[in-house]
Design a binder for these strands. Structure first.
Length: 190
DNA sequence: CAGTGGATGCTCT
DNA sequence: GAGCATCCACTGT
């Protein structure tokens, strides 16, 4: 039996939660592995979906922390966020990559790809590998199909500017596991 | 390697 | 009608 994340884990500043998620193991229906790359988005952030206020798409971001916010990206991919802070804060962490360790066969089948390094190296790839879709939007992270397992040791974390955005491009709110080969893109050299 | 462009759907202006 | 919190295939060194 695995221990769950503490109840208040997500009820903190998104800027604290984001780096704390590096090394946490995410499973969706038993498929996943340790998170190696995330990005933080807060409500004052022009790059955030919530910046211009509540809409049908981003409604979950404005709800209680500890739930999944899933949206479609570029018409093709899904992206998974974990809602943080408190009701109305509209802050969330985008999951950008994890190390595939659980359910490799299911990930390979969904991704139609053998190479482990690329199974979940990117927000769209991660969702495809784990089978995350709109059906998961709004679901609590402390119940099936989600499982979050705390990390056992402090990882070495590198902060860097975020990827794929056009506003607030200089904020260093991307966090990655130093030296990981499962990132969506290499981290800047230290 | 780097750079470019197409696919595709939905949200918001 | 524009613009995406993307990925992949393809081109050219």
């Amino acid at each position: 039996m695995t221990e769950a994340l503490s109840a208040g884990f997500f009820a903190r500043s998104v800027h604290e939660v984001a780096p704390d998620l590096i090394g946490v193991t995410l499973l969706v229906d038993g498929v996943g592995g340790p998170i190696v790359e995330v990005e933080a988005y807060d409500s004052t952030d022009p790059a955030s979906h919530a910046f211009r206020g509540r809409t049908p798409r981003n409604a979950v971001m404005f709800g209680s922390p500890g739930r999944a916010y899933v949206y479609r990206s570029y018409g093709i991919h899904w992206c998974l966020n974990l809602v943080c802070e408190e009701e109305g804060s509209a802050a969330a962490v985008l999951l950008r990559a994890l190390e595939p360790t659980h359910g490799l066969d299911r990930m390979r089948a969904r991704r139609k790809l053998d190479e482990v390094r690329l199974l979940a190296a990117g927000p769209g790839r991660l969702c495809e590998a784990l089978g995350v879709t709109r059906e998961h939007d709004g679901l609590s992270l402390d119940r099936p199909p989600f499982v979050l397992v705390p990390r056992s040791a402090e990882p070495e974390i590198v902060a860097a500017p975020r990827i794929g955005i056009t506003r607030a491009v200089d904020q260093p709110w991307r966090y990655g596991l130093k030296g990981s080969r499962y990132l969506s893109r290499a981290l800047p050299r230290a």
